[in-house]
């Protein structure tokens, strides 16, 4: 059974149809990389699939249940969404913020337990912010804030993770650490969709690479079949793809 099953998803924002009918099944133990130009609808897709954004048509099933039949709280127990903008407003501490990831599972009235605190600490350790618990989120750098948002999603402990450009503000070391983290989450059987701009992370870590263009989804049968021609068509620019001595492939935009 697919963890997340999207079919015929349409989203109209204002007068423009951003998504014109998207079908995708996310399976257990998969990292799906989602790429596309600016404004191609990556964020719109993730928000709609995660139940936090507008949906004009089509259906979303989460662990076999129609998302419209589930309460918000239940959806948040199954899907964690890491937004592109962290947008921290109030000076909550890092620990308080990550603990918010435990709220959907805890319910309204139950106090947070020791396990909740442990899960939050583990999530912070996983993004290399173990010593940041008492810092205020409003004092963090962009990259640190982004890692706090990832930690909050980890603390949610959901089978499905949707991440919207989670490494856009991260330095290479922390970006690689996030991908290794996603890789280990995938090996636990979780399903992950991650919107990216850097095709190289996708080539290296993704089990599937999907492209959004003109409101439609394009998926080559295998990431191995992503080639210069396909990239050129998606991004309207020329590419060079090379195979490195390690066997990994690397892509460079040329013009």
């Amino acid at each position: 059974m697919a963890l997340l099953s999207v079919s015929g998803l349409k989203v109209t924002l204002g007068s423009s149809e951003v998504l014109k009918g998207i079908d995708i099944d996310l399976l257990e133990g998969q990292i799906v990389a989602l790429l596309g130009s600016n404004g191609s609808g990556k964020s719109t897709f993730l928000a709609a699939a995660g139940g936090i954004g507008r949906r004009s048509g089509g259906s979303v099933y989460i662990l076999g249940d129609d998302i419209d039949s589930l309460s918000r709280r239940e959806v948040a127990r199954r899907v964690a969404v890491v937004p592109q903008q962290t947008g921290f407003l109030m000076p909550f501490s890092v620990m308080e913020t990550v603990l918010m990831g435990r709220f959907p599972a805890a319910g309204r009235f139950a106090p947070l337990s020791r396990e909740d605190a442990q899960a939050a600490r583990a999530a912070l350790d996983a993004v290399d912010l173990g010593s940041f618990g008492d810092r205020l989120v409003t004092d963090l750098s962009g990259g640190e804030a982004q890692r706090v948002a990832i930690a909050r999603a980890l603390a949610q402990d959901t089978p499905i993770l949707l991440l919207d450009e989670p490494v856009s503000a991260l330095d290479p070391r922390h970006a690689m650490a996030v991908f290794r983290l996603l890789d280990s989450l995938k090996k636990e059987g979780r399903g992950i969709i991650v919107a990216l701009h850097d095709i190289n992370y996708a080539l290296r870590f993704a089990d599937r690479i999907i492209f959004l263009k003109d409101g439609l989804l394009h998926e080559p049968p295998s990431p191995r079949l992503v080639d210069e021609k396909l990239l050129g068509r998606i991004f309207d620019t020329q590419w060079r793809l090379e195979t490195l001595s390690s066997g990994d492939r690397a892509a460079f935009p040329l013009a």
């Binding site: 928000a47 995660g50 139940g51 936090i52 309460s71 918000r72 709280r73 239940e74 959806v75 948040a76 127990r77 964690a80 969404v81 937004p83 962290t86 947008g87 921290f88 407003l89 109030m90 909550f92 308080e96 913020t97 918010m100 990831g101 709220f103 959907p104 805890a106 309204r108 009235f109 989120v137 948002a149 909050r152 949610q156």
Partner: peptide, 22 residues
């Protein structure tokens, strides 16, 4: 008191729905 968590989530600046708050 009973809606303290919901208000925390809303005031934190995250999209509240992503943490289960309608």
């Amino acid at each position: 008191i009973f809606w303290a968590r919901d208000m925390d989530v809303i005031s934190s600046g995250v999209n509240p729905r992503s943490l289960g708050v309608d």
